[in-house]
Structure formats: structure tokens, C-alpha cells
């Protein structure tokens, strides 16, 4: 059982998962950023692997990825940066990214490196469910990696059930039909959709992402799920920060700590 599965086994509520782009804002910020995220009190870390053509991402994450690539970030370098992260980081860590860099690295090799570094799970949004089942599932599972799939308001009930079946940690509920960082807010459509998912009584826990930017939106969605994922708002804060570690801790505490 990996750290993610252990965490979700205790049926937790109000989890905060934080996404950031590896190698941003500076090439060697990856590990210091992770430490600050943990110190602030987040429950899960998602490390974004930068990619030249991130079609599911809005302007904020695109810009951070572009900066990271300009800084010289590569998947190989990322594994070097996080090689010894488990000396400092004890919360679950996922890698999130597009499939192409993973395929170039070699799927088997990638899974092995993940295991060596202590990665618990993967979010590869352009990996189709069918290809996962037939090509990748075994490799990932044998290296202790959970695969996380997305569900959107347009996803059919039948497919939601398939995703539920394929999940061994949590389902990533995308709050609205959008790329990351869209300021759609949480309207009645979103709440209806969260209620519908709740009513489906899925076996898997859920985290809600896309459009979560502050304490208010975090608390609003925690009522319908096991917690939420913050990405673009976090990266916007990082981009504007002059004192990264301090600002990260403050940002997370403002969301997570009871008032």
C-alpha cells in the first residue's frame, strides 16, 4: 500500500492537494517548494512535469511550464532533484504530466524511477483508460503507483463507473468543463454535479480540482468530496512571490488552518 492509499483508507475529509510545476520559478526550486508545501500543512503534493504542448492547461500553468523548460527542466533532471526527497517529505507525492515525455523516458524506466524516488501516484490526463488497462496498468501497479483519472461534468455515468472501477486511490473531479485556472467559480451547475456524483455512491474517494483558488472555494467543495486540489492560484502566488518558502506556508495555512 502506498502513502496515498494509506491516507485515503482513513476516510479523511478536507484534504488539500497542491499542484506546482517542477523547475519553477527557478530550476532548483522543486524540492524547497515541496518542503514549504508540506510545512504549510498540505496533505498531498502534485509535481507537474512541464511539457511543450499542454492542451489541458490554461495560461498560468502554460507559462510556468514554459519558464521551467527555459530553465532547463527535464524529466531526467526532475528524478535527480527528488531522488532523496523521502528524507524530508512524508506526505503522498504524485507526478502529473502529459504522456509524451513519459513515453520518451520509457514507461518501464519511468515507473522504476518513480518507485526509487518514493512517488505514490500518477496523473496522466491524456492517457486513455483503454491504453492504461492494456498497456500501462501492470507496470505502474507493480511499482506501487496509483493511477488517478479525471471525471468532468460531461463524463457519462457509465464512464464514471469505469473510472471508479480502475481507481485504487482517488478520482480527480474536474469542477467545470474548462482548462486549468479558468475563473468559472462555483455556480449552481457545479453544485448540482457534485451532488450527482455524491449520489452515485462511488467506491473511490474524490478530490475536486479546477477553479479552486482560496479558502472560500476550498471549503465550499469539501462539503461534497474528500478535499480539493489547488494549482493555478498557487502558481500565480509563486510567480508573484519574493520570498517563496514563507509565502507558500502562509498561502496554505490561510486555506487549511481553522480560523
Amino acid at each position: 500500500m502506498n502513502r496515498l492509499q494509506t491516507l485515503f483508507n482513513s476516510k479523511p475529509k478536507n484534504l488539500l492537494s497542491v499542484y506546482f510545476t517542477a523547475g519553477f520559478p527557478e530550476l532548483n526550486d522543486t524540492l524547497p517548494v515541496m518542503k514549504a508545501i508540506q510545512e504549510g500543512g498540505a496533505d498531498i503534493i502534485e509535481i507537474g512535469i512541464p511539457f511543450s504542448d499542454p492542451i489541458a492547461d490554461g495560461p498560468t500553468i502554460q507559462a510556468s511550464g514554459k519558464k521551467a523548460l527555459t530553465n532547463g527542466m527535464t524529466l531526467k533532471l526532475l528524478f535527480n532533484q527528488i531522488e532523496s526527497m523521502r528524507k524530508k517529505i512524508d506526505i503522498p507525492v504524485l507526478l502529473m504530466g502529459y504522456l509524451n515525455p513519459v513515453i520518451q523516458f520509457g514507461v518501464e524506466n519511468f515507473a522504476m524511477k518513480c518507485k526509487e524516488c518514493g512517488i505514490d501516484g500518477l496523473i496522466l490526463p491524456d492517457m486513455p483508460l483503454y491504453e492504461f488497462e492494456t498497456l500501462y496498468k501492470e507496470v505502474f501497479a507493480s511499482h506501487g503507483l496509483s493511477s488517478v483519472f479525471l471525471v468532468t461534468p460531461q463524463t457519462s455515468d457509465e464512464r464514471i463507473r469505469q473510472v471508479d472501477e480502475a481507481t485504487d486511490s482517488f478520482i480527480y473531479l474536474v469542477s467545470s468543463s474548462a482548462t486549468t485556472g479558468a475563473k468559472s467559480g462555483l455556480g449552481s451547475d457545479q453544485l448540482e454535479y457534485f451532488k450527482k456524483i455524491e449520489g452515485m455512491k462511488l467506491n473511490s474517494p474524490t478530490l475536486i480540482g479546477f477553479g479552486i483558488s482560496n479558502r472560500e472555494s476550498f471549503e465550499a467543495v469539501c462539503g461534497y468530496s474528500n478535499g480539493a486540489i489547488i494549482g493555478s492560484a498557487f502558481i500565480d502566488m509563486m510567480a508573484a512571490s519574493n520570498n517563496l518558502s514563507e509565502d507558500i506556508v502562509r498561502f496554505i495555512k490561510r486555506i487549511k488552518e481553522p480560523t
Binding site: A56, P128, L150, T152, Q154, S156
Partner: peptide
């Protein structure tokens, strides 16, 4: 070939 698309595009 195949259809390597994020879930957001899947229904379309």
C-alpha cells in the same frame, strides 16, 4: 493513432 486526449475532450 488512437485518441490520446484529456477527459475534458472525451465526450466530444
Amino acid at each position: 493513432g488512437g485518441a490520446f486526449i484529456p477527459e475534458m475532450l472525451y465526450p466530444n
